[in-house]
Design a protein around this nucleic acid. Structure first.
Lengths: 175, 175
DNA sequence: TAAAGTGTAAAACGGTCGTTTTACACTGTC
DNA sequence: GACAGTGTAAAACGACCGTTTTACACTTTA
């Protein structure tokens, strides 16, 4: 595998599992199997690496979120959690750990959140057969965010609860 | 004010605003207006301080959450966010930043989450006039958690959306 | 008035942080 | 066969980490 790709994948795993600050560069170079010199030649700094990690995560997530119905949104989340584990939203965690003070990271996070909201809006609109549904979109967004967060301690139950709640709200909006 | 109380309050503010790891002890002693010797005499270590912070936050939060209806749950959250700012759940952030690997902290976090769930269950049951409502409780919990998380980037809109969604689900459960 | 307790100020502790540098091996190319 | 490019291994960088220690001032109490 490409060095940089492998490095970013390793960093994503370690940052997600152990936290950003708690993950030292020594551990990173060791687990990625490269020297610190090569690491810094490829990514420049730890902050840039974190931004790159969020960038690839954003792309992988958005690819998966390319669905047609509100129900499927939560299927995607359930599968994602089964595949990658539920340790909370890495974007919000990065934002919180840096106090929102590092623009490189804050930008990626806020852009990701806006893209997610826009995607949910699109799915809601399609699922309901057109029309404006800003309020329902915000509700589904909150359910989605809540499912991610609550899955940390409630597991898959949080996701299926969110799914059912969303279905209720959609059904109510239809009638 | 009592030294330890003031220290914990200062630590809560700094940990919440800037993150746990990102907050150094120098900054803490400086802003709390005491020497490092006094700090360590009173709390022992940074980890213990973090656990103490979560402890007082838990008590303050639970006092506020002592309400009777589902609607009021979200009123409490709205007021809390206005008073203290919405930077995400400090419990989950602490858990994430430490990878869940520090028992002292993990215990406080998971206990707090279970207490919150139990309190919501009690409120839901009272609001619906008795009976078992495990599924609805889980849905309200997810909405609450989602409102906290989404408020970081959507502000108060996330909270009022959660409030309305919860009201819809409660109304549906009543009929 | 001596002792014990509690506080501050500040230097120092050993360790670890992110990052840079040095020294060297291997590879493909003109 | 020199050469630039890219990699590793590992030492070293200065800064900062959480924590402990030293030295000293003030208050309370017996």
């Amino acid at each position: 595998m490409d060095i940089k790709t492998n490095l970013i994948a390793t960093a994503e795993r370690l940052f997600d599992r152990n936290g950003f600050s708690a993950t030292g560069m020594d551990r990173l170079t060791q687990e990625a199997g490269l020297s610190s010199r090569t690491l810094y030649k490829h990514v420049g700094s730890k902050t840039v690496l974190m931004a790159l990690v969020l960038g690839v995560r954003e792309r992988r997530f958005m690819e998966r979120l390319d669905v047609q119905t509100v129900d499927e949104i939560f299927d995607v989340l359930a599968q994602w959690t089964r595949d990658e584990g539920g340790r909370g939203c890495l974007f919000l965690r990065s934002y919180g750990e840096t106090g929102g003070d590092i623009p490189e990271i804050a930008n990626v996070v806020l852009t990701h959140k806006e893209a997610t909201r826009a995607k949910i809006a699109e799915i809601v609109q399609r699922d309901l057969g057109g029309g404006d549904h800003g309020e329902l979109t915000e509700q589904i967004l909150v359910l989605f965010e809540g499912a991610v967060a609550a899955a940390v301690y409630r597991g898959m139950d949080a996701i299926s609860a969110a799914r059912k709640a969303a279905a209720s709200l959609v059904a109510q909006a239809r009638s």
